[in-house]
């Protein structure tokens, strides 16, 4: 940073100033995510607020504390910790105990980002690191939380004989129906409307797919995220779930796909740099997600799909590295 001026290399003109800045981009993403988050708060009420506050506050506190202890310049103002906290809250069920949310925020910031050297150096999406950590550490506690009272409306017709499905998400119901080869007659097409506008079974980010799509499209239109990742991700999900004999629209709308495809997989740092590589990255997320849903042991694997592809991103980037001109190979 402080090298003498003579060492700097100035490229040829024209020099065009872009107004984009790190915190500006973070603000756009926060803004795009805000309607979905607000609607989740309106629909779910106090539990959603507690989860949001716990995640965001612990993420901010963790970043501030790390910087203070490591005697680094304070980086709270770039907005990335705020975004990580919000994203983490969006993938938590609303009735998650607050101390689990706090632990998630701490792990997301410290293990997911700060140990790597801070923003721009993390290899995995911090929010997803936090989520994977808490869901594995307290799987029993989280799944034991009672869901909202109005879940009955969407239960299977044969729900009477099952006590255990009371907290099930639509994806879990669809999976149970599939496992019973359609014996419950779970109507996937009837789920479009609640999934798009008001779905209270699942995490905060599953309340309204429509608002997430809207936010994602704004970000694409602004040039903040690359269309290749969401298109590759969602397109692959649709095509493959159709090929596996399920309803593609239901599979794309349900679960964390919209949140993951628009807001998490598109993270600049943890996705490949090359454009073709980004398409491959999106398709890889989609394949992992669909196969995990249909042949795995969990109803939803968006978190792991994106983390897995985050891990693959440096390798994918390496394979798509553009040719250097003016050099003979091997010299």
């Amino acid at each position: 940073m402080s090298e003498p001026l003579s060492k700097r290399i100035v490229g040829p003109a024209p020099h065009i100033h872009a107004k984009d800045s790190c915190s500006g981009i973070m603000l756009w993403v926060l803004g795009a995510l805000a309607p979905a988050a607000l609607w989740a708060v309106v629909s779910m009420g106090a539990p959603a607020i507690i989860t949001l506050v716990a995640c965001i506050a612990s993420a901010l506190a963790a970043e501030a504390a790390w910087n203070a202890i490591a005697r680094k310049p304070q980086t709270l103002m770039d907005g990335s910790a705020l975004l990580t906290g919000l994203l983490l809250a969006m993938c938590m069920p609303p009735r998650t105990p607050w101390w689990i949310s706090v632990a998630g925020g701490l792990v997301a910031i410290v293990l997911g980002k700060m140990v790597f050297g801070g923003l721009g150096w993390n290899l995995f999406n911090p929010a997803l690191v936090g989520r994977a950590f808490v869901t594995l550490s307290w799987a029993g506690v989280i799944s034991a939380q009672t869901n909202f009272g109005w879940f009955r409306a969407l239960s299977l017709p044969a729900a009477g004989e099952y006590d255990a499905i009371s907290g099930a998400t639509r994806l879990a119901l669809a999976a149970a129906d599939r496992a019973a080869s359609g014996a419950y007659g779970y109507d996937l097409a009837a789920q479009y409307q609640p999934l798009l506008f008001r779905n209270l079974e699942g995490s905060l980010g599953e309340v309204s797919a429509a608002l997430l799509i809207l936010g994602g499209l704004v970000l694409i239109a602004r040039g903040i995220i690359d269309w290749r990742i969401p298109v590759g991700y969602i397109g692959t999900m649709g095509l493959l779930s159709w090929a596996f004999g399920s309803d593609p629209i239901f599979n794309v709308l349900a679960g964390g796909v919209m949140l993951g495809a628009f807001f998490m997989a598109t993270d600049y740092v943890t996705s490949p740099m090359n454009k073709n590589a980004r398409l491959v990255f999106g398709v890889g997320c989609g394949v992992f997600n669909v196969v995990g849903r249909f042949f795995g042991s969990m109803p939803e694997v968006t978190t792991y799909a994106i983390l897995f592809m985050n891990g693959l991103a440096p390798l994918v980037d390496r394979l798509f590295r553009p040719r250097t001109f003016g050099w003979v190979k091997g010299e």
Binding site: L111, G112, V115, F116, L123, F124, V129, A132, F133, L136, F288, V291, G292, F295, G296, S297, M298, V301, T303, Y304, A305, L307, F308, N310, G311
Partner: peptide, 19 residues
């Protein structure tokens, strides 16, 4: 740092369990 990264990478592989 290698161990931390390997741990996080292996966290992603948890999603493959039971496929």
């Amino acid at each position: 740092m290698s161990f931390i990264t390997a741990g996080l990478l292996s966290l992603a592989y948890v999603g493959l369990a039971g496929w």
